[in-house]
């Protein structure tokens, strides 16, 4: 019974909204608003075709390459900058400035330097998505527990083992916060870099639909981007729960 109630809470409002949408558009001939059934049909028609290989897969692979590289590089530089005090103080304002640049302006800039190709798009994603990870890693590394740090020293845990078991671990809640921000930035940049300069990819396809007034197709593209955003956030939540299991456990105990 309680389980049923939870399901009702979960699907109740979405179903109500879709019904409302269906009722409101049942007699509508509005050009801009597709009907629910029509949209679902178009969605399958447009994206479960060769477009999946031409537009969707390249987009996803660029997104993932950029995201993974920015997370790895962000953690790497974050640990280096975070562990050396002078380096941190030297780089702080410069990093804050780079973080504050709205990442989409890098698209025209990198287009000029690298040209219009896949590397450019991956670079755009890295340049935009690296800052949250990097700055959060710096903060996390800086705020390591002093007692634990001394304990490591006493037990002669040093070098790689110290980073692997102590620094990275204690910074990981902060790092995950950064990764969460990076994911949404990376998705935005993937779309923009394709909208601005590309001949393939999701962003390109959607703009193409809009320019040719293929409105239901355009909506189906928006829906696909939404689904990508939702699945990325679900994957992230799942990973975060696993990676930070010890952390949430610790907080439960503290409470």
């Amino acid at each position: 019974m309680r389980f049923l109630k939870q399901i009702a809470y979960f699907v109740g409002l979405p179903i109500a909204l879709i019904l409302l949408w269906w009722v409101l558009t049942i007699d509508s001939t509005n050009f801009f608003v597709p009907k629910p059934g029509q949209l679902a049909e178009t969605f399958v028609e447009v994206w479960f075709s060769e477009r999946f290989f031409v537009d969707v897969l390249p987009s996803i692979s660029r997104l993932l390459t950029g995201l993974v590289l920015s997370i790895v590089l962000g953690i790497l530089f974050g640990i280096i900058i975070g562990s050396v005090r002078i380096l941190r103080q030297l780089s702080e304002p410069v990093l804050e400035f780079f973080r504050a640049i709205p990442p989409p302006v890098l698209v025209p800039l990198l287009m000029l330097i690298i040209g219009i190709n896949d590397q450019m798009k991956v670079m755009v994603i890295i340049f935009g998505a690296i800052w949250p990870v990097l700055l959060n890693t710096v903060e996390g590394v800086r705020a390591v527990d002093e007692v634990l740090s001394d304990t490591c020293r006493v037990y002669r845990i040093s070098g790689f083992a110290r980073f692997r078991y102590f620094v990275l671990r204690s910074a990981s809640p902060q790092i995950m916060t950064g990764v969460r921000q990076s994911i949404s930035i990376a998705l935005i940049l993937m779309v923009i870099s394709e909208m601005f300069a590309s001949s393939s990819g999701l962003g390109f396809a959607i703009v193409q639909f809009q320019r040719t007034f293929a409105v239901p197709q355009m909506w189906s593209g928006i829906l696909l981007l939404g689904l990508m955003g939702v699945s990325l956030s679900l994957i992230f939540q799942f990973t975060e729960k696993r990676v930070l299991r010890w952390y949430y456990g610790l907080r439960e105990v503290d409470r």
């Binding site: 809470y9 109740g12 801009f32 935005i188 779309v191 355009m218 981007l225 956030s233």
Partner: peptide
């Protein structure tokens, strides 16, 4: 009752709305 809807709408990248805004 709003939890699932908000969690669904929130991660939708706003740039996906660019074509709609243009239209």
């Amino acid at each position: 009752i709003t939890h699932s809807t908000i969690e669904f709408l929130r991660p939708i990248p706003s740039v996906a709305l660019i074509p709609l805004a243009v239209l």
